[in-house]
Design a protein around this nucleic acid. Structure first.
Lengths: 147, 147
DNA sequence: TATTGTTATACTCTATAACTATA
DNA sequence: TATAGTTATAGAGTATAACAATA
């Protein structure tokens, strides 16, 4: 039925909102000299205690390993991460945050939080929590579901 | 407070879900020979009764006019739209769907609907409606709010 | 042979700047 | 001068293919 295509409406609304948030986020990251992809990679690197290999980082970013090379090159050139040979396996490269990388971490999170804040401002605190809960359920289902 | 950063969680969950949906959508559109941006433009063109000018299309897509040129070039090359001079103002170009453009329209919508269907499958019908309602409220607020 | 990372290359999406034609 | 569209160019994000080093 056309008039009750909840899923089709979701597609449109969801993608449009995401587009706005990505733009806002990019604008907020620009002053820090970082692109969204670089920021995302840095957040993933920072999340883990143990240093990640390039392949692991690619897997977490849901991206092909070659694509990570470019991003890490930029982060390394910016002095935010460094590459180190894995002593246990000489094929592998370990990525680690530098002190400068640690220092920008909080600002990256804040930039993204602010972008979300702007987007979701029209919703009440309760509505935001409802939205978060729905997305969290979705995310856990996907993670559990193998994809 | 760190442990109750609803907005920060929203940022992460929202962007991750959107990324998955965009990928899924791109995969479903590829067999039709269309990219997501081309598909989106064609849907906007198809939505209106009166033919759109390039500037209008750019405004609806929230994109700079120059970016529309490339997209319309591709759609025209694919035989899905055609450009026609505006008799009322010779500076303007009007974009119209061809019969072939009309013919693929339903398949574009279906590709996107399927992408959303895949993403939101873990949610119940009621949850999807709740999600849609939240996003719809967000969207109407933004539209009303001037941005 | 399989895995890890890289060089080389290409495509999509979008942007800014400068130019043309028209108003 | 202001508007509509374009040519020229660039940068971000990501992909495939081929290759070297290592396992």
């Amino acid at each position: 039925m056309e008039s009750d295509d909840t899923t089709g409406q979701l597609a449109e609304l969801f993608l449009r909102a995401a587009r706005r948030m990505r733009r806002n986020q990019a604008d907020r990251l620009a002053p820090l000299g970082l692109t969204p992809a670089q920021s995302r990679a840095l957040r993933v690197i920072a999340r883990d205690e143990a240093p990640l290999r390039m392949v692991d980082l690619a897997a977490r970013l849901e991206v092909v390993p070659r694509s990570v090379t470019t991003v890490v090159d930029a982060l390394e050139a910016a002095g935010l991460v460094r590459r180190a040979a894995d002593p246990a396996n000489r094929r592998s490269t370990l990525i680690m945050l530098t002190p400068a990388g640690h220092a920008v971490r909080a600002r990256l999170h804040e930039a993204r939080r602010q972008a979300a804040e702007d987007l979701f401002a029209p919703l009440s605190a309760r509505q935001r929590e409802a939205l978060r809960d729905l997305l969290a359920e979705l995310d856990s289902s996907v993670s559990a579901g193998g994809l």
